[in-house]
């Protein structure tokens, strides 16, 4: 394909650590094929050469956390035929959404010597809260294979298929021994969306939910199980509030566990 007929692709970031963008740059042997198939015309992490829109496919990393990002993401949407939100921040608000239930202004006043210079929103929210998103790739960071698969599908004119099954489905495919059953390790895999290749269980650790909730998950039942394993209910709530804690299913789970705990305290003699 000549440069003129290749899809024009742009990559932007909002509030984020750039880790998802690095997954693209880390694509190694696929990079040359990628460069041959698409025309990356705006990717500040990779090049200072930046073309204006419109773009055929736009990847947006990061959450909306500052007032100017609301306008910026609307402009990006207008310039983009197909917009993909990439990563936990762009799809759920990210770790920085921990502020959403707190007094964000107090953090700013505590951390910055001149807080009046810092313009920030009280909440950190996903891209889809602000503009229409055509596809979400979750994860902290995203899975490179999943991104390349999505781009390959789009190049072939097909809608990418992103599985909503649990991490367990992939964990078992790979033959890993269940860390929850065999070691009593707290694991969010049963309620977390697959995509990472069951990376944490592969190393004997419980999943911490960075790909966000799976299909409507039964967080109540898993929460009860983690408490049965000996985890204090506050810690169980904190597990759901972690990387993708603002995703509605995990947020509600954490709130329900925290509420239940309050009830227990009231009921205690």
């Amino acid at each position: 394909m000549s440069a003129s007929t290749k899809p024009r692709v742009a990559v932007f970031k909002m509030a984020s650590c750039d880790g998802c963008q690095l997954q693209i740059l880390d694509a190694e042997e696929a990079l040359l094929d990628l460069a041959g198939a698409i025309n990356i015309v705006n990717f500040a992490e990779a090049s200072s050469y930046m073309e204006p829109g419109p773009y055929d496919v736009t990847l947006v990393e990061g959450s909306i956390s500052a007032p100017e990002q609301i306008e910026q993401v609307k402009e990006i949407r207008e310039q983009s035929k197909f917009l993909i939100a990439i990563g936990a921040c762009a799809t759920s608000g990210g770790i920085q959404a921990l502020r959403n239930t707190q007094d964000a202004g107090a953090f700013v006043r505590t951390i910055y010597p001149t807080p009046e210079y810092v313009k920030t929103l009280a909440t950190s929210t996903p891209i889809a809260d602000h503009v229409r998103v055509d596809l979400e790739l979750t994860g902290c960071p995203i899975d490179r294979g999943q991104l390349l698969g999505a781009l390959s599908a789009l190049l072939a004119g097909a809608m990418p298929r992103i599985s909503t099954s649990s991490v367990c489905v992939e964990c078992k495919r790979r033959g890993y021994v269940c860390v929850l059953v065999a070691k009593g390790e707290p694991c969010l895999g049963p309620v977390t969306r697959t995509g990472c290749g069951a990376l944490c269980p592969a190393f004997g650790r419980g999943c911490y939910g960075c790909f966000g909730p799976s299909q409507p998950p039964n967080t109540d039942a898993l929460g009860r199980r983690l408490v049965d394993l000996g985890l204090p209910s506050k810690l169980v709530a904190d597990k759901f509030r972690f990387i993708t804690g603002w995703a509605p299913a995990f947020r509600e789970a954490a709130d329900a566990i925290a509420d239940g705990r309050k009830d227990e305290e009231v009921a205690a003699p």
């Binding site: 041959g36 198939a37 698969g149 390959s152 072939a156 367990c168 309620v191 998950p217 039964n218 039942a221």
Partner: peptide
Amino acid sequence: AARCLACGNCTSACPTCFCHDIVEGMSITG
């Protein structure tokens, strides 16, 4: 159903469960 996680561990561990998906994949170059 209130207890079930719908995580699929039972079906994976079951030695007779045979359900599968057929996934079509393509290289970037096509």
